[in-house]
Design a binder for these strands. Structure first.
Length: 463
DNA sequence: TAGGTTTTCAC
RNA sequence: GUUGUGAAAACCUA
C-alpha cells in the first residue's frame, strides 16, 4: 500500500489534520473502520451504497441540483414521488443485479472558443441518484490516497491552494512552465484500465459491476442509441471521481520523478528550472501519458513557456514577475477579464424590464462572486480598472432610463395627468408600464386588474 | 448551531 | 437546449 509514501514537500502536508471535521462518512464505513480496524477498502460494499441515510443524502442532492431530465423525461421534481410510489423497487433491482442504467442524453454546449462544443451525457434522474450514492461512498475512502497536488473535484481543495503552491515554487526559481493539455480527456478514458484500477481497491464485485454498467450504458443521439466502448460521459455524478482515480497514476509518477506540478482535473502545469528541462519533461510526459495511460495529448495546446508569458494560463489566472517586489505574482488572465466584461455587458444591455434597483442588486451580487474568486490577483490594476468600467456603465444605464421616464411623464402630463401623482400606467406592445419616480416595471396585467386596484388609466402611448 | 436561496469560479 | 463535481461568498428562516 502506497498510502504512507513520502511526498515531495509542497508546504501543506498536514491538510487532513488541519480540518478534521470535514463531513461525516457514511455510518457503516465509520463503524467498520473503528470496530474492526480492517482494510478501509473492505467497507466499499453494495450495502454501504444502498444504506437508507446514504440514499437519502443522494436524493436530496439530485433534487437540489434541479438538473434537466434524461432520456425518460422524468423531472427532478417527480423523483421523490416516483420513489414513494415504487418503494424498494430500485434497491431491489440493484441488489439482484437486474438494474440497468438508461442511456445518457447527449447535449452539446458551446465552449469558450467559438465553434467548439463540449459534449455531455445527461443521465436519467434515477441513474443520477444511484451514481451519487456510489460516489458518496467511494469518495470518502479514495480521497485520502490522492496526491497533494491534485486539486480538482476534491473535498477541501480549492483552486487557490493550487495557485499558491505554484507561485511559491515559481519564486524558488522554477520559472519554466510545461502546460499539458489532454485532448478530450473524458472521452478517451479506457474502460478496462479503469475497471482494473478500481478492482485493486474495491473487493465487492457487485460494486464493480454496477460501475461497469454505468460506463457501458450507451448514449442516445436523436433517438438512436449508440454503445459506449470508451470514455466517461461527463455529466454523471460519479464521473469526476472516476477521472481522479484514473489520473492518480499520473500524479504518482510525477511525484516519483520529483517534479513541481499541480493538476486540476485534466489541466496540468509542471514547472521547471530551465527551458531545456521543461522541454525534456514535456516530451517524456507526453510519452508516458500516451503509452502508459492510453490517453491523447493535444500537441498543439501543450507547450513550454516562461511563466509570465501570456500563454501560460492556470485556473483563470496568469503570472507575472514584479521587479520591484522581486517575486512572482498572480494576475487575472485576459480571457477571464473578457468573459466578465461580456457578462456585464449582456446584463446591462437588456431592456429595462426590471427596475434599476434590481439590476444594480444583481450586478453587485455577480461582482461579489467574481471578485471573491480573483482576490489572489493583484488588485492594484485590474480589479480597480474593471470596477471603474462597470461604474461608468451603470451611470450610463441610469441616465438613459431616467431620460425615458422623463419623456414618458411629460407625455402623460400633456394628456392631462397630474405630475405629482405617484403612479401612472401606460401600455406598449410588450406590456404595461408602471411609472413611478424611479422605477419602470413591465407587468402583464389586464385592464380589469387596473380598474380593480383603482389605478389611473391614461391610454396608450408608444415606447 | 442547523435548514434553505442566490451569485461567482475552476474543470 | 445546460449535466456534473469541488470551492467560496452573500443573504433568508427557525
Amino acid at each position: 500500500m502506497d498510502r504512507n509514501n513520502e511526498k515531495p514537500s509542497c508546504g501543506r502536508g498536514a491538510r487532513n489534520a488541519a480540518k478534521p471535521a470535514q463531513k461525516d462518512p457514511p455510518a457503516s464505513i465509520g463503524a467498520e473502520e473503528d470496530t474492526h480496524n480492517l482494510n478501509l477498502y473492505a467497507s466499499i460494499t453494495l450495502e454501504a451504497i444502498l444504506e437508507p441515510t446514504n440514499l437519502k443524502e443522494a436524493l436530496k442532492r439530485v433534487i437540489a441540483n434541479r438538473g434537466a431530465p434524461g432520456v425518460d423525461g422524468m423531472e427532478v421534481g417527480q423523483l421523490l414521488d416516483w420513489i414513494r410510489s415504487h418503494p424498494g423497487q430500485l434497491t431491489k433491482a440493484i441488489k439482484e443485479g437486474t438494474y440497468r442504467p438508461s442511456p445518457v442524453k447527449r447535449a452539446s454546449i458551446p465552449k469558450e472558443e467559438p465553434g467548439k462544443f463540449r459534449d455531455l451525457g445527461i443521465p436519467t434522474v434515477i441513474d443520477r441518484l444511484v451514481q451519487q450514492a456510489t460516489a458518496q461512498v467511494l469518495d470518502w475512502t479514495y480521497d485520502r490516497d490522492f496526491s497533494d497536488r491534485s486539486f480538482g473535484f476534491r473535498r477541501n481543495m480549492r483552486a487557490h491552494h493550487a495557485l499558491r503552491v505554484i507561485t511559491a515554487e515559481a519564486d524558488q526559481g522554477y520559472r519554466w512552465a510545461v502546460d499539458m493539455d489532454l485532448a478530450k480527456f473524458f472521452d478517451t478514458v479506457n474502460h478496462s484500465r479503469l475497471i482494473r484500477k478500481l478492482s485493486l481497491k474495491i473487493k465487492d464485485g457487485r460494486v464493480i459491476s454496477l460501475i461497469h454498467k454505468k460506463l457501458r450504458s450507451g448514449v442516445q443521439i436523436k433517438g438512436e442509441i449508440k454503445p459506449t466502448e470508451i470514455g466517461l460521459m461527463q455529466g454523471g455524478p460519479l464521473s469526476p471521481l472516476l477521472a481522479n482515480i484514473y489520473l492518480d497514476e499520473l500524479d504518482k509518477e510525477l511525484e516519483k520523478r520529483g517534479h513541481r506540478f499541480a493538476r486540476y482535473a485534466d489541466d496540468l502545469i509542471c514547472i521547471c528550472k530551465s527551458r531545456r528541462a521543461a522541454e525534456r519533461t514535456l516530451a517524456s510526459l507526453t510519452r508516458f501519458v500516451q503509452e502508459k495511460m492510453l490517453l491523447k495529448v493535444n500537441r498543439e495546446k501543450s507547450h513550454v513557456a516562461y511563466i509570465s508569458s501570456p500563454q501560460t494560463k492556470f485556473l483563470g489566472y496568469g503570472f507575472y514577475y514584479s521587479r520591484t517586489k522581486r517575486e512572482v505574482r498572480l494576475t487575472i488572465h485576459e480571457k477571464s477579464k473578457q468573459k466578465l466584461k461580456d457578462t456585464i455587458r449582456k446584463l446591462l444591455s437588456r431592456s429595462p424590464k426590471t427596475s434599476i434597483e434590481s439590476v444594480k442588486q444583481l450586478l453587485a451580487q455577480k461582482l461579489r462572486g467574481w471578485m471573491n474568486y480573483f482576490q489572489l490577483a493583484d488588485a492594484q490594476r485590474w480589479t480597480q480598472g474593471v470596477d471603474r468600467w462597470i461604474r461608468r456603465r451603470i451611470r450610463q444605464l441610469l441616465w438613459k432610463t431616467w431620460k425615458k421616464v422623463k419623456t414618458r411623464i411629460r407625455a402623460l402630463v400633456k394628456l392631462g395627468a397630474d405630475p405629482n401623482q405617484a403612479y401612472y400606467w401606460g401600455c406598449t406592445r410588450k406590456g404595461y408600464w408602471r411609472i413611478s419616480n424611479s422605477h419602470i416595471l413591465t407587468t402583464t396585467l389586464t385592464t380589469d386588474f387596473l380598474k380593480q386596484r383603482g389605478w389611473s388609466w391614461l391610454g396608450c402611448f408608444r415606447g
